[in-house]
Nucleic acid binder design. Structure first.
Length: 195
DNA sequence: GAATCGATGGTCT
DNA sequence: GACCATCGATTCT
């Protein structure tokens, strides 16, 4: 069962929290690579100084202004890509960065893609999970809810409140608000959460 | 373990 | 020309 567009069209903080436990799935050369989402961060509006939308619309961040349920993928530090899900209403720039997965299906393929690293390091970080699932810049702007999508989200097993922790976002710049708002959500004590 | 540092390229001023 | 929503290796305590 896939997550439908209306799931993503809600308040971004709600979507971020509810994304925990869902499965991110990549179909690649007939193989299914999937992981359970265990860590995310929300980026909300142009007022959020940590968001790429803070300077207003640019060529890079255009996807953030587009319809919910699409991907926003960008290159960071010249060598890693990061995957986000666009949330909220079309025209309002907001997205949830997926920071870590617990590997579920296609472990062998992920190990190959990740150079044989230990399983704990396959998908425990935004750049790592993109490498493990083969998510690159070509996915920027694609519709994750399209029937033919090779990258999509499944309902999975939602995480109960007691298992959800939150805190400030990792490695963000900006004013005091941007640095301190507890918009990072993760599954408590999960081995695959980053850092 | 914790802290530090280099790699590497697209985007924006 | 500066700045990164990172990773992995190296260099410390």
């Amino acid at each position: 069962m896939r997550l439908e567009r209306r799931f993503f069209a809600r308040d971004t903080l709600q979507v971020a929290r509810d994304l925990l436990g869902r499965r991110l799935v990549r179909v690649m050369e007939g193989r299914r690579l999937a992981g359970r989402i265990v860590e995310v961060e929300a980026y909300v509006g142009e007022e959020d100084e940590a968001s790429h939308a803070s300077p207003g619309m640019t060529e890079r961040n255009t996807s953030m202004y587009g319809p919910p349920g699409h991907a926003y993928v960008y290159l960071i530090y010249g060598m890693h890509t990061c995957f986000n899900v666009v949330t909220g209403q079309t025209g309002f720039p907001a997205a949830v960065l997926v920071r870590a997965l617990e590997p579920a299906d296609g472990l062998e393929a992920m190990r190959e893609r990740r150079g044989g690293r230990p399983d704990e390091q396959l998908t425990s970080g935004p750049g790592r999970l993109c490498e493990a699932l083969g998510i690159d810049l070509r996915f920027d702007g694609v519709d994750l809810c399209a029937p033919e999508a090779s990258l999509f989200l499944e309902v999975g097993d939602p995480v109960h409140d007691e298992r959800v922790a939150n805190g400030p976002r990792i490695n963000v710049r900006g004013d005091e608000t941007a640095v301190n708002v507890p918009w990072r959500f993760y599954v408590e004590k999960n081995r695959y959460v980053s850092r």
